[in-house]
Amino acid sequence: MKRIDLHPLPVRVWHWINATSFIVLIVTGVQIRYRELVNIMEFRNAVDIHNDFGFILIGNFFIWLLFYLFSGKIKLYIPELNPKKLIAGSINQAKFYGYGIFMGDPNPHHPMPDDKFNPMQKTAYLAIMVLLIPAQIITGLLLWDVKLFQKWTTLAGGLKIVDSVHVFLFLFFTSFMFVHIYLATLGHTPFAHIKAMFTGYEELEEERHH
């Protein structure tokens, strides 16, 4: 079985810190917002933990950003710049997830260290890392100390809008988690990708044609 070094250590560390933070932030977020429905912990503790992990997530984001910028690996996230090719590639990938995978077709994309993400992953992850996570970080900061950032909040359209954006993204990320974890099980074995995220090495299924 062929093994490729797909996930460098900083990426793995970043990923699992991110994953833990996401889960903690989602759980505490639900506890803060839906106090009358969920009662896992005290509101006050939920707020404190949410704030703490928010800052962990911020720090972690910069680990990701610096690693990818300085290693030059940021290009992994840059999708095909030719729109025709991008659309064609995306449709091809979507066809696989929506049809081919059921029929036993091979995945049109093979993750390689210099081409880790398929066209759909590239666009989605780029949007998440460059737009959604920063937006969540910024709105989270504005809500963390409302008085301190009052001017910015007002500029952004008011506390209610800032909070709505934060909550919308929280709901998106919650929803994303289901899809993300499910997709992670679509390796050649259900735990292949997940294992790779711990070890760094992705085991490639031997090609049928080989």
Partner: peptide, 19 residues
């Protein structure tokens, strides 16, 4: 009310029903 009452928000209590 997001626009006319855009600065009043209480965690958990005054959340947007639509959201």
């Amino acid at each position: 009310a997001i626009l006319p009452v855009n600065q009043f928000y209480v965690l958990g209590s005054t959340r947007l029903k639509l959201l």
